[in-house]
Amino acid sequence: MTQIALKTEKLTIQFGGLKAVNEFDIEIKSGMIFGLIGPNGAGKTTVFNMLTGVYQPTSGSIIGFNKNLVGLKPFQITHAGFARTFQNIRLFKNLTVLQNLQVAMDQNPKHKKFGLLSTLIKTAKLLESEGEKTAECLSILKIFNLDSRAEEIASNLPYGDQRRLEIARAIATGSRLLLLDEPAAGMNSKETASLMHTIKDVRKIFDATVLLIEHDMKLVMGICERIAVLDYGVKIAEGTPSEIQKNPRVIEAYLGKAATNDQAR
């Protein structure tokens, strides 16, 4: 039996008079790579913000790994197994690459937390745990080919690496569902291709489920097993990549525009 990683029912949020997301239903099986697409302003990031507790939905339910997530704070949702990246990269800019991961790893529920007293006297247990956490961070960085830059300040990384570091940081939280908001934005086609491999690797290594927002159709169609399409806050279609590509409503709302955009690029 496959587990359900995420299920939403009639998820709705209203900003003033605008229903940014309207009765959004989605069900993602564990282990899947799921795409969420739609034109600019369709409400994709808003869905992420509700799923991760940054926004409180006006109505509707969110069940993550069999747990109700509505009303929880973002950090509680991360502990429940969801971690995200941001459309406008939000790294800890002045910290090192390694420290970025350590912050997340410290919150990983599988690692013990230490009180003030142990922190002050640096108990042997604490040092041991720190060593384990660091080793684990470095092994995650290695998957992203960032281990050699562990001591660099995050904001000094090239743009593409910053995006990848954000994914690595999300993994370090120990979450099993990764929500990636436009992970390939600003990457060239070579970087995008390598990112596709990395996402697949990450799913395999960490037994993760991935929900990703992306405008790059090659990436979406290339790695997603299922795709949902949002337009003006409403889900207009859901299916496999080939079903989505054939769906006339999607073509009208989105693919037509995106296809011409792609050619223009």
């Binding site: 940054v54 973002p74 950090f75 991360t78 910290l95 420290q99 990983n108």
Partner: peptide, 16 residues
């Protein structure tokens, strides 16, 4: 440090 750098990113990484 995470709070100083970016509160939203911090809370999204599980930091209270």
């Amino acid at each position: 440090l995470a709070i100083r750098e970016d509160e939203i990113a911090g809370t999204s990484m599980g930091v209270n």
